[in-house]
Design a protein around this nucleic acid. Structure first.
Length: 547
RNA sequence: GCCCCCAUCGUCUAGUGGCCUAGGAUGUCUGGUUCUCAGCCAGAAGACAGGGGUUCGACUCCCCUUGGGGGUACCA
């Protein structure tokens, strides 16, 4: 144990907003390995791309990780953008030793060269230009913008991967000198990872398979810098089940765009109409609709969604934050994510965090890409919620509400929330409890009626539903014991007298109280609402729909 | 295009040459339960991508084909 107790893993995301599940799974595996081996798990922010980073994004990332409970062991967060003083001397040293060099091509130059290669159906491989001493002197004196490239040794490069197996790599024909410092002075990812992993004593690098071929570059750099080589393990990619491609934040935007196109077509409406209704500029919308490289930002999305009739629940959850809003328990998400590529042994699938830590091993990590199967996650969550202690559920519910600040349930006290959780037992995600019981928290004249429900339940069959409501009004008003049990007993009695099935009474009542056909069990809902609201809502319904 | 990775039920996976008549989970279907939605209970159907080898014997090893994915940046 003493040798293994020194392992160090890390999660090194770039801050582009909320963490997405692919990243969460990478973080989880690193975390599990560290915890299993009694080592350390570190967090580092890879923010060398100045244009893409924001402080807000770092916050969101950290918030998601904390929500998941993947606590890191470094007290201070490490930001690569603040470490130029460490990278630059190393780069200068590489240059001095002839292992790296300044390259003066502009991005346009390179694009052109790539275009030429492509037209000639050749692979573009960067070749170091032979500059004369005079040219070099001149470039230096005029302080010409440049990048620094690492002179990649021209030979086969290979390494062993703990998941994929021995001898991964590329042949000599594919290596080329890659950029290690950009013209803005920032190191590239490739340089910063290598330096920081060594500086932080990282022994195991678990990351997505999209980095597989980069590894060869990283190893060459390690050798030049005299660093030890960590164990590499490349994890399979998590795929979107609909597109079959890498799960991406864009998938939500894609769904909105797709729906907007359909809506425009089926409703015969124009972009201008959506624009004016949503408050977005028509140009922006038109651009967005035809160019899938453009995405709506988080503030714009709901505006468009409202116009085209998309609900939050219609979008695929991609970011950890989406799952939080939807009302999944973090430990369930973790359990599900762990199973995407890792086999814990036996026929066991539902595990506590402790059990996952206990049995985690790189040996049982699979190589194949996995589609993200939301139904299974849903089943896990349903089951976990059904068996969770009341306190755990309450905490989870409050957390979910917190992530849905517009919910009217945010004002409710713990006792009320506990009650709702009990009433709605059998729910799949916590947001479902919110959605189906929010009518209880709206004012009696504030909720809206679903026209289809009114037609089907109240008006059909000679307005039978409205007749039932009149009976109910008379029946409920004088009830002494306002409890679900007493109310149910009286209503059952009414049903007997009038030769009506329970359903024929419950549904009109449900529509009168909630405006729709879905709610928690009706007698408990009545008890929860209280006599005054119940009667007021029945009265309102009769007033609005009885002629 | 080129390079790399991968390949068992719809999906996530177990399987390391005979324990496989291929196991589990989820989804689907059929019945039951229920005041709605959900849930719950009982059953059922459902896979080794194709072709060559190797072997007494291949889901398991090798090769090819096909399919899927990733990379191909002064993004990470």
């Amino acid at each position: 144990m003493s040798a293994s107790s020194s392992i160090v893993t890390r999660f090194a995301p770039s801050p582009t907003g909320y963490l997405h599940v692919g990243g969460a799974r990478t973080a989880l595996f690193n975390w599990l390995l560290a915890r299993h081996m009694g080592g350390k798990f570190l967090l580092r922010i890879e923010d060398t791309d100045v244009a893409r980073n924001s402080e807000d994004a770092v916050h969101k990332l950290v918030e998601n990780l904390q929500w998941l409970g993947l606590q890191w062991d470094n007290t201070e967060l490490i930001f690569q953008s603040k470490r130029q003083a460490i990278y630059n001397p190393l780069i200068d040293d590489l240059i001095a030793r002839g292992l790296a060099y300044k390259a003066y091509e502009t991005q346009q130059d390179l694009e052109q060269q790539r275009a030429v290669a492509e037209r000639a159906k050749r692979v573009f491989i960067y070749h170091r230009p032979q500059l004369t001493d005079e040219q070099i002197r001149q470039y230096e004196t005029e302080n010409r913008p440049h990048v620094v490239r690492f002179a990649m040794p021209v030979r086969d490069h290979s390494f062993d991967d703990a998941v994929l197996g021995l001898n991964q790599g590329v042949g000599a024909g594919q290596v080329q000198d890659f950029v290690i410092r950009k013209s803005d002075g920032m190191p590239t990812y490739h340089f910063a990872v290598v330096v920081d992993d060594a500086a932080m004593g990282v022994t195991h690098v678990l990351r997505g398979q999209e980095h597989l071929l980069n590894t060869v570059n990283h190893i060459a750099l390690q050798e030049a810098l005299g660093y030890p080589r960590p164990v590499y393990a490349h994890l399979s990619v998590i795929l979107n089940p609909e597109t079959g491609q890498k799960l991406s934040k864009r998938d939500r935007d894609r769904r909105i765009r797709q729906r907007t196109h359909e809506w425009l077509k089926s409703q015969k409406r124009s972009v201008a109409e959506i624009a004016s209704a949503s408050g977005l500029s028509p140009d922006r919308l038109t651009e967005w609709l035809k160019n899938d490289k453009i995405q709506l930002d988080l503030a714009e999305q709901p505006l468009v969604m409202r116009e085209v009739g998309l609900k939050e629940a219609d979008l695929p959850e991609i970011m950890v934050h989406d799952f939080r809003r939807a009302g999944y328990l973090p430990e369930v998400l973790l359990n599900f994510l762990a199973l995407l590529g890792w086999y814990p042994g036996g026929d066991r699938e539902r595990m506590t965090i402790g059990e996952m830590i206990e049995s985690f091993s790189l040996d049982n990590v699979g190589k194949a890409n996995a589609k993200f199967n939301r139904d299974k996650l849903l089943a896990f969550n349903t089951e976990a919620c059904a068996s969770a202690p009341a306190d755990r559920l309450l905490a989870g519910f409050k957390d979910c509400l917190h992530a849905n600040p517009a919910s009217p349930l945010n004002g409710a006290d713990d006792a009320a929330l506990r009650k709702l959780l009990e009433m709605k037992a059998g729910f799949r995600v916590l947001r479902e409890v919110e959605e189906k019981s929010r009518f209880l928290f709206l004012l009696d004249d504030q909720f809206t009626f679903d026209p289809a429900a009114v037609e089907k339940v109240l008006r059909k069959n000679g307005a039978e539903g409205l007749i039932v409501l009149r009976w109910l009004r008379d029946l409920l008003e004088p009830i002494a014991d306002w409890s679900a049990a007493a109310i149910e007993a009286s209503i059952a009695k009414l049903g007997n007298e009038k030769q009506l099935k329970l359903n024929a009474i419950a549904q009109p009542l449900r529509v009168a109280l909630s405006g729709g056909t879905v709610s928690p069990p009706i007698f408990q809902s009545v008890e929860f609402l209280g006599r005054t609201s119940t009667l007021a809502r029945i009265d309102r319904t009769l007033r609005e729909f009885a002629e």
